[in-house]
Design a protein around this nucleic acid. Structure first.
Lengths: 207, 207
DNA sequence: GATCTCTGTTGACAGTGTCTACTAATTCGA
DNA sequence: TCGAATTAGTAGACACTGTCAACAGAGATC
């Protein structure tokens, strides 16, 4: 998913640094993402990143923005896999699944994306791409409502409930807390139960 | 809730350090919790904490354990407020509310408690107190099931679904992400919707 | 051709966690 | 009671971090 760009250096340094940061995040986790290790891995001096990013928080925000774009793509792809004449509620469920799968495939990146204190939340890319990702969930929620599901509820609150559920599951599972609290649950059973309770189809008869 | 103990020093240093850590966490956030600032605030040399804690991760785990005990107390207190002959499902909802309220009242502490990579998860206090907190949710879920709610479902998975929902909401709200994604939602509307969808009473007729 | 801007280097600074040597106090056994 | 041993806390060093200021070189611009 993330190609190595450290060996060739055609791309400008700012883009290269973000790519190297994604590699570092994937391979060694969130603690290993420091400005200096980043610079070493990119083959530049320790002061070079400062020329492209205002601070470490700013760089983190830029990396997080890339994560949100990745998340949006994953949601779009999963929804597109459900045929358009199918049940919109199935697409909503698929979007929720994609959220969790994307998070668990990139645990370090995902942890960074939601560490508000550690990144510059005023960064423009971050604001744009994070809200864009949530718009996806809202869109699929609205479509499900238009097909007759939970028509009386506020769309934002409904989308929010789906969001907190998949997000909570992803973070607790990625951190190992879910497995510790609920020892014998498979990830598929757990995720299916969560999505059924939130986005139930006909009071949970189906499946 | 957390009394200052910095001015009097009768208590042993290890307990005092944990209390000072809670103060530091509440006043200045998770980033400010360093071994050296802790030592300064406790009025001892920078090497003193190492005599009582194996590492920074170990100290963090001890502080997190205190947080889980606080969480357990909050859940117990909220459930006790519902009269015993009342609906167990109401008690389950109250427990979920208490989880969120406790998290939002102690955001720094709560962030620390679930930062698996930053704390020593093998710490005995941490393991004991974190599982004890989750046992509360499981207990109230089982009682709700015994009263006829969602009787067909696995208790662990059901409790897990409640957990991920309240946990996801608490973390997203505390980090400001929920408000950014869903601009005009009040915390009470959002939490009520979440709990209704998960722990619905008679298919959501009530309220 | 002189100047200016952009990009990257280098060195310094304060702060961090951890390790080791050292000191003072307390406990414990003969 | 006295000496030894364990414990608690101090002080200094080390490598590492983010940030800043001064510097160097390459291109563009006038």
């Amino acid at each position: 998913m993330i190609r190595s760009v450290t060996e060739h250096s055609e791309s400008p340094l700012n883009e290269r640094l973000v790519q190297v940061a994604l590699e570092l995040l994937a391979e060694e986790g969130i603690e290993a993402l420091t400005l200096r290790s980043l610079a070493r891995r990119a083959g530049v001096s320790h002061g070079a990143p400062a020329r492209h990013f205002k601070s470490l928080s700013d760089l983190r925000a830029e990396v997080a923005a890339t994560g949100f774009r990745l998340l949006s793509e994953a949601i779009d792809k999963s929804a597109a896999a459900i045929r358009l004449d199918g049940d919109p509620l199935l697409r909503l469920r698929a979007a929720g699944r994609a959220y969790v799968e994307c998070a668990l495939a990139n645990p370090g990146l995902f942890a960074l994306m939601f560490r508000a204190g550690d990144l510059d939340c005023n960064n423009e890319s971050f604001k744009r791409d994070s809200t864009a990702a949530f718009e996806r969930l809202l869109h699929h929620t609205r479509e499900a409502q238009e097909s007759g599901w939970q028509t009386g509820r506020d769309s934002h609150l409904l989308a929010g409930s789906l969001w907190v559920s998949v997000h909570g599951f992803a973070t607790l599972w990625a951190g190992g807390a879910y497995q510790a609290g609920i020892p014998h649950a498979s990830i598929d059973d757990a995720l299916t139960t969560n999505l059924q309770l939130i986005a139930d189809i006909e009071q949970g008869e189906q499946e």
